[in-house]
Design a protein around this nucleic acid. Structure first.
Lengths: 106, 106
DNA sequence: CATTTATGTAGCCATTTGCCTACGAATACT
DNA sequence: AGTATTCGTAGGCAAATGGCTACATAAATG
């Protein structure tokens, strides 16, 4: 399981999306994360590796435990992709944009 | 090439993301879309099928031509996934939210 | 120091993916 | 009618994916 390591590929797997949501609020150990899934621990470990390699997650070692936490900057890259489409459905967004323009002028 | 047809899987492929961006501003025919890529036309056709099956694209037949156009509602589903993470990087978003609250109160 | 605990890695396997070359179906053109 | 054009589908293939069972490594624990 190598090659093709980009955020979109990473996000494509349901388990990996679940991991991201799980770690969003607080950092968790590899084991703690794995405990939330039915798949074998090494399988989750592989998912963590993929998420880490594409920098959606970051590690922080603490003794023999490894904590994983989200990297918001990388999450933003996904948002950036859909941003051009946003105006196509979100009127509220346009309204806010308009307000923001006024706000900046002041 | 069957099974597992969801937006995230669809978005995972670079060619398919390019197609979405291409069709964003205007609807295009299958051939017109394929002309923008180096891959064989049937390959692009398959990508179009996948995007259509997961409802990111919609077809509109016109004679022997088939026009593809974006379905913003489905694009929003991707945005919905990252929405919970947005506050982690976008201060501007928070600022706008604050302003919006005031705005609504009036 | 031997043992348990927390993780990652190796290697194997079935399934899925993306791509290509025919080929088929339907509509337009002469 | 016969031919050209626009598309989708079938089938085959190499590579990637996700999962599992050992096994390796490294840090706590008794």
């Amino acid at each position: 399981m190598n090659l093709r390591r980009d955020i979109f590929q990473a996000i494509a797997d349901p388990t990996r999306r679940a991991i991201l949501l799980l770690v969003a609020s607080q950092s968790m150990t590899a084991g703690g994360i794995a405990a939330n899934f039915d798949t074998a621990r090494p399988t989750v470990s592989k998912h963590l590796r993929i998420l880490t390699e594409c920098e959606l997650l970051e590690q922080k070692k603490n003794g023999r435990e490894i904590y994983y936490h989200l990297n918001p900057k990388k999450m933003k890259e996904i948002a950036d992709f859909i941003e051009p489409f946003r105006k196509m459905w979100d009127e509220r967004f346009n309204k806010l944009e308009a307000i923001m323009k006024k706000y900046k002028k002041k």
